[in-house]
Design a protein around this nucleic acid. Structure first.
Lengths: 324, 324
DNA sequence: TTGTAAGCGTTATCAC
DNA sequence: GTGATAACGCTTACAA
């Protein structure tokens, strides 16, 4: 290590570079000067080999590769993760868990190539990587379906958001409020339905108007159609995500009803659809990038052995636009 | 290396693992068996340290981080890159060249942490990394604005695509064909304009109807407005990308004209806008994922010292929908 | 073709 | 507080 040519031993240089506490200030500064003049950059591989730490965290994404990257949710999580990691020594690398060869992925992760893993499975219930738990620091995006009790994860406060969305409807004077719920085998689907129900109950309103979709536009349209076909009074709808709200929009308009005059609608996520719909959709903002940042932060804490909360719940906020 | 416990020396194991040509078939198979039973996975760091190869390629993206990840073009390139790399030993890591600290990025890249770099700057002309050329294998997405003569890059055949788009208009009987061109300081902008012109000339038509935009929806609308305001006959438009076509749509409709009856329009890119517009946009498919794959492939060839073409031009294809 | 042995650039464990 | 010195797990001359 050439930097040692500036006075001290390699050990001391290492100490300085790694910010060890107890080193003579004199030496520290002379080493720092040497580092600067020699334009020294520690060799990652050597460091990893010696310390058994890789300074790499993996972002594990489900193999629906083609879709995953086009998914704005995923893209935004990555953005947040990258933003946080940029200020640390950690490198981000992505691996798509190929269904074709899950063992390859597993071996890679367990082969000491990585310090920790970030698992992003979007709305899906696929948390099949929970078994890595215990062998490797792991942080999930969203509450995992299984082993939630001993997994680290960060999620958005879905229930609170849904309650706020519904309250907006109630405050707007609506009395017959339906919901287009998400799949009941996914935490967001469950929690958002629960939040809707809680708001209605708090307002003393009836919670019978429920139809379920699968978070897609077409499923939202179908659910809205079923809701309207019940023939019951209906003047407000909370859709568990903006895409389903978009589906609801098309059905409401096709029946000759107006938004928000006849039926007010509130969505959830505040994604691309929210602003491109007409009238612009009132919805709940889902802080996705923040979720990514928090995940990365949590993982780093975990890796470095600092004590942390096992679960982080991010607050949402109501974005009032023209539909409610 | 425990695997050596299955008969031979570590050197031989290394040879087998790295697929060296000349090793006794007997030994090969026995080593392979040992590898399998011991579930051996080579240690990346050690390998890197010894071989001075990192097996890592960096995807360098401009710092507009927040936007970059939301950009479907970028996301799709990443998808292609990841897909290709998944079948190699190479790892993908992304670095956003922070404007705040460009030196940090530079040092990282030059610090022997990476075998090669993929530069993605979208439509923008930012190819400020060209100076890395020569010091590190480098592949650009799209023809760089500067040093195109000695840079490796893969691009879509913009001119050919634009010609095909325009030909579709001509074949549909249009005789007064305008274009909304892209910025003339970006290769795609220039090439697509050139393609349009070539098709018109080949058909013996006039090429005076040109207005320029900046690839955004609003600029497309403005350009269309200027085109219409000329008061000249106009029955077809080739927009240099789908977003500008979307802008053109709104103006055409607002003037009470019909698509395609009064004005046929063809776009370029075949992105999200193409299918969400009404009528669905006839456009040129831009094989973005394929571009990512090819970039990765080219880079790996470069890294491994295999001879390759310096530039790859990907073919486009016409997607006929309802607007022309 | 195969084995031996010398590194690769750090960190970690000890003495000092 | 600081400096030797031994790992870390692999590749790669060089020898055999």
């Amino acid at each position: 290590m050439v930097a040692a040519l500036a006075g001290v031993s390699r050990a001391t240089v290492s100490r300085v570079v790694n910010g060890a506490t107890s080193v003579d200030p004199h030496l520290v500064s002379s080493v720092e000067k040497a580092v600067r003049t020699l334009n020294y950059v520690p060799n990652r591989a050597a460091r990893t080999l010696a310390s058994r730490r890789t300074y790499t965290v993996t972002l594990l994404v489900p193999e629906s590769t083609s879709k995953v990257f086009a998914d704005p949710f995923f893209a935004t999580v990555v953005e947040g993760v990258a933003r946080y990691l940029n200020n640390t020594d950690y490198m981000l690398n992505m691996v798509t868990s190929s269904e074709a060869n899950p063992d390859k992925t597993r071996r890679y992760l367990m082969g000491g190539n990585v310090d920790g893993v970030l698992v992003v499975s979007h709305h899906t219930g696929d948390h099949s990587w929970a078994h890595l738990n215990g062998s490797l620091p792991l942080v999930f995006a969203g509450r995992p379906l299984i082993n939630a009790e001993d997994s680290y994860f960060v999620e958005v406060d879905n229930e609170e958001g849904a309650t706020a969305a519904t309250a907006q409807l109630v405050d707007g004077g609506r009395r017959h409020i339906a919901t287009i719920a998400g799949p009941q085998d996914m935490p967001p689907g469950v929690d958002r339905l629960e939040g809707w129900r809680a708001a209605l109950l708090a307002a003393g309103l009836n919670d019978a108007l429920v139809e379920t979709g699968d978070f897609t536009v077409t499923s939202g349209a179908a659910a809205m159609r079923r809701l309207l076909d019940r023939g019951k009074p209906l003047d407000g709808v909370f859709a568990a995500n903006d895409q389903m709200a978009a589906g609801a929009y098309s059905v409401i308009k096709e029946r000759g009803l107006r938004i928000p005059e006849d039926i007010a609608v509130v969505g959830f996520d505040d994604d691309y659809y929210a602003t491109s719909l007409s009238p612009a959709l009132t919805t709940i903002h889902h802080p996705i990038a923040a979720l990514g940042e928090k995940m990365a932060e949590l993982l780093v804490e975990l890796i470095e052995g600092r004590p942390t909360e096992r679960v982080h719940r991010l607050p949402t906020s109501l974005v009032v636009r023209d539909s409610a």
